[in-house]
Simulated scan of single mutants.
Amino acid sequence: MKQKKKNIHISAVSCGLLVCGILLISLVMQSKEVSEEMLVVKAGYYWSGMIDERERLTIEEEAAYLGDYLTITDVNQRVFDTRYNWVEVGAVSAQHVKNGDYVRVYFTGPILERYPAKLHGVVRMDVVTE
Rank of each mutant, 00 (worst) to 15 (best):
N85K: 12
G67S: 14
P110D: 12
K98A: 12
K2N: 14
G90H: 00
T73Y: 02
R104L: 08
E37W: 02
N7V: 09
R56Y: 09
N7A: 13
Y115I: 05
L27V: 06
E37Q: 14
G109V: 12
R56W: 06
Y46V: 04
K4V: 13
S31R: 10
Q77V: 13
W47I: 09
L18I: 07
L57N: 11
T82D: 15
E130M: 09
I25P: 00
M1W: 03
V122Y: 00
G49R: 01
E113R: 11
K42L: 09
L39Q: 11
I111F: 03
V92N: 06
V41D: 07
Y102C: 01
Y69W: 13
N76A: 08
D81V: 03
V123A: 08
L57R: 07
T73K: 09
R83K: 15
Q95H: 04
V19R: 02
A12F: 04
R78A: 07
R114F: 05
Q3R: 11
G49K: 03
V13R: 10
G121E: 02
D74K: 04
A43Y: 01
Y46H: 11
N7P: 03
Q30W: 07
Y115F: 06
V87Y: 00
I25Y: 01
G21W: 00
N76H: 11
F107D: 05
V89Y: 04
Y106W: 01
E37P: 05
E130G: 14
H120D: 11
K118N: 07
D74T: 10
G44T: 03
N99F: 06
E53D: 08
V122R: 00
K5E: 12
A64R: 08
E113C: 10
S31D: 13
V19E: 01
G109F: 01
E130D: 14
